[in-house]
Design a protein around this nucleic acid. Structure first.
Length: 440
DNA sequence: TCTGGGGTCCTAGGACCC
DNA sequence: TCTGGGGTCCTAGGACCC
């Protein structure tokens, strides 16, 4: 493996908004996940907001309490995606080995300058797709001459010149993905940190918290704590067999993590696997017992899922429906079930019929807070229209018309009759509908 | 007054076929 | 009549990521 760069855009959604709108610059802003002000969280907080104690993932209510002057901006995924495509095109100038990790993060592998080339460069497509946001912690000094530092500096300069000075990134450079990502998290915003070797990596790990490393979340951290393991120094003392007994195959990953070892390759975007599932979930404006309102929401979600499947030319076989209720003493309780069909589908009404059946099977009658549906077991949709039956042909024409109109004018511009009067669940804003409650 | 929404991967256990 | 083993598919549940 050559040198790995991890590039993470700082407060990405908020920075894009500030770059686009001068009135937002230098101010604490929070980007919400959708076009709603109740029962939602911040997908991103601007650097100014973070300085005032606002964190990504905070509920809007809490963020407002911490920072009463917080400006709320409705997220605009397409805008962020278009900026992502632009910065990925810059990165591509430096290496074809570019792994898109999320909408604001990626790994670059620069071939080793010394040893033999381990990979053969080959052609790759020029169009990029893919998408999700993030942040981090403090310090460390970097050797200026380390391979990759020049590239990192050039990338930073080009981002400022080509995307605008308000969009910055933190870059971590190291010998594998795990440590490069850790390095990148050490200085934000606009950081550049090198962890040149394993010896340095161990020093950094020894000062890090267990969940500073990608792959250790709250649950694993808690379990490690219960085992008396409080940091990476402790973790390194635990024999591999012991970790494997507790964490199965993941024990080996933890064992390696503690040593700064990570063998996972940089997977270039053009080798990325296909989509595995397509789903939507929605938290209702208020918890409800009302089956009709749940039914309407579920139907809309199914229509959105089906629409996305069709836009990706996919059909699915397995339908997963789940819900969450907050009925039990404020503690979230969830239930879900999946069902595999004997055939493939990308029809929202059909997906809904199965989802609704699943829901009715699992619902105990408690108040519903959130409901979701996902379709997996995906296969490419056949490009030829196989519908010999007039009825099926008619259905296909309806679905195509729905997609054409809704893609152009916004979700639910055209909708099934039974969807009228229900709560709004929208992926793409519809400018012709008046219930878009706020914009900035 | 109250923690959204989009995904991924892994494991265990059961059914079923050969 | 009793029984094994390999392989695949499905479901539930848990954990992680941004």
């Amino acid at each position: 493996m050559g040198t790995i760069l991890h590039i993470d855009m700082n407060s990405y959604f908020a920075s894009v908004e500030q770059q686009a709108n001068p009135r937002l610059r230098g101010k604490p802003i929070g980007v919400t996940g959708g076009d709603r002000l109740k029962r939602t969280v911040l997908s991103t907080a601007s650097i100014e907001a973070k300085r005032l104690g606002v964190k990504t993932g905070m509920s809007l209510w809490e963020a407002k309490r911490v920072c009463p002057n917080l400006i709320i901006v409705c997220s605009d995924h397409e805008k962020y995606l278009s900026v992502t495509k632009r910065f990925l095109n810059i990165f591509k100038d430096y290496t074809p080995y570019l792994e898109v990790f999320s909408i604001d993060e990626c790994f670059l592998e620069l071939p080793s300058l010394t040893g033999p080339a381990t990979r053969q460069p080959h052609d790759y497509p020029t169009t990029l797709t893919r998408v999700g946001p993030h942040h981090g912690a403090p310090r460390l000094v970097s050797p200026a001459s380390f391979p990759g530092v020049d590239v990192a500096k050039q990338i930073k300069a080009r981002l400022k010149a080509e995307l605008g000075p308000h969009i910055t990134c933190s870059i971590g450079i190291s010998y594998n993905k795990l440590i490069a990502k850790l390095a990148g998290s050490l200085k934000k915003p606009d950081g550049l940190v090198v962890i040149p070797d394993e010896e340095t990596a161990l020093k950094v790990l020894d000062e890090a918290s267990l969940d500073d490393v990608c792959g250790i979340g709250s649950r694993i951290k808690r379990r490690l704590f219960q085992m008396g393991i409080r940091d990476f120094k402790d973790l390194r003392k635990v024999p591999k067999e012991c970790l494997m007994a507790s964490f199965k195959s993941y024990g080996k990953v933890l064992y390696n993590m503690a040593r700064g070892t990570d063998y996972t390759p940089v997977i270039p975007f053009y080798e990325k696997q296909e989509i595995k599932s397509v789903g939507h979930r929605h938290t209702l404006e208020e918890d409800t017992f009302n089956p009709e309102s749940i039914r309407q929401t579920l139907l809309k979600l199914c229509e959105l899922v089906a629409q996305r499947l069709r836009s990706k030319n996919l059909m699915g076989k397995t339908i997963h429906c789940w819900y969450r209720s907050s009925a039990l003493g404020g503690v979230f309780y969830g239930e879900g079930m999946q069902q595999t069909l004997t055939h493939l589908s990308c029809d929202g009404l059909e997906i809904f019929q199965h989802s609704w059946q699943i829901f009715q099977n699992i619902w105990q009658g408690e108040k519903i807070r959130m409901i979701g549906v996902a379709v997996s077991n995906l296969f490419p949709n056949k490009p030829i229209n196989l519908s010999w039956l007039p009825e099926e042909k008619k259905r296909n024409i309806i679905l195509q018309t729905l997609d054409t109109v809704n893609n152009k004018y916004g979700d639910f511009t055209l909708q099934r009759g039974i969807l009228l009067k229900s709560e709004v669940v929208r992926r793409k804003p519809n400018p012709f509908l008046s219930d878009r409650r706020f914009k900035i």
